[in-house]
Design a binder for these strands. Sequence first.
DNA 1: ACCTGAACACCGTTCAAGT
DNA 2: ACCTGAACACCGTTCAAGT
Lengths: 178, 178
Amino acid sequence: MRKVATMAGVAPTSVYWHFGSREALLGEVLTVLIEDLPEPQARSRTPRKRMVELATGLRDQVAATQPVQELALELGRAAELSFPTQVALAREVAASGLRGDDAAMVVRAILFTVGGFILLTDNFEQRVPGSETTQELWHTQGGGAVDAGLQRAMERGVDTDVLFAFTLDKLLDGLLPA
Amino acid sequence: MRKVATMAGVAPTSVYWHFGSREALLGEVLTVLIEDLPEPQARSRTPRKRMVELATGLRDQVAATQPVQELALELGRAAELSFPTQVALAREVAASGLRGDDAAMVVRAILFTVGGFILLTDNFEQRVPGSETTQELWHTQGGGAVDAGLQRAMERGVDTDVLFAFTLDKLLDGLLPA
DNA sequence: ACCTGAACACCGTTCAAGT
DNA sequence: ACCTGAACACCGTTCAAGT
């Protein structure tokens, strides 16, 4: 508040006259930031490929505008960030032949998976220096609990981009049976 | 800090002699809380059913111990909470016939999906009163953008428990083809 | 209508001084 | 070895007083 006021060349208390509270101020900032986000785009030739494009695009956009996402999260307005993609996704699900409640479940399953991935990856990156990743925990855990090859693979860690693409692909296999 | 000190019948500054910082204190609290969590259990008869049981169990456990989860999240130690389930899940994936890197991808896809769902649902519940859900945004959005039946379904909202079960089921369909 | 300074009730933290 | 009070540098916010 004091920093913002200084930048505006005004006393901290003036901000309260204009915005009422810190939260209200941040809310207006977020609204502007959200308006400036680009529209989701999908140019591929099949509905399924366009779904992947939209999902990946949302993930990339959030990664590229992390401060916006953190602010939205803090203000409990994360839903707004994903809404344009949700609408575009709904259109593709309808294009793939699904209707009504069935279509809605598919739209939501995809969006929850994408959104969940984003939050989870984000949480990993904000990891406190001293804390352990599950990767490190697999090292600690003596062998023998699971198959040796699996153990080694778990100890190696993952590329989250690859995992995201894999998970989305398999989910779509389940959601849109040939 | 001051509250904790009062409860311990000591000056706030004494806490710093024992723990060093607020973060270190909370870290030790979290370690104890995590130790007290029950082991993941899976009693069903097929690997796939046990996977569903483990995933659902983790979700339920987190919901039942939300303060622990929030603390783990704040301290960047969310990974630890899911680790026992991750090991149990790895065992089931191996039991279903997968090995090495393929198995690891499947374990991670499931765990990321479950973890993501948990974080996302949690974020929705912590929604700020004034903020809009996508459900409300669908109402705002005039009709015509998508199929009318789908629009109505999106306006109705979801039971996240049902959506979770559905998504997990479809993901497993994709991950463990018959 | 807009801005101000003084002040309040909080934070986490440091540190010299005590026993 | 453990505890203390005083103090620092922060927060968000209220409010009476100014112009």
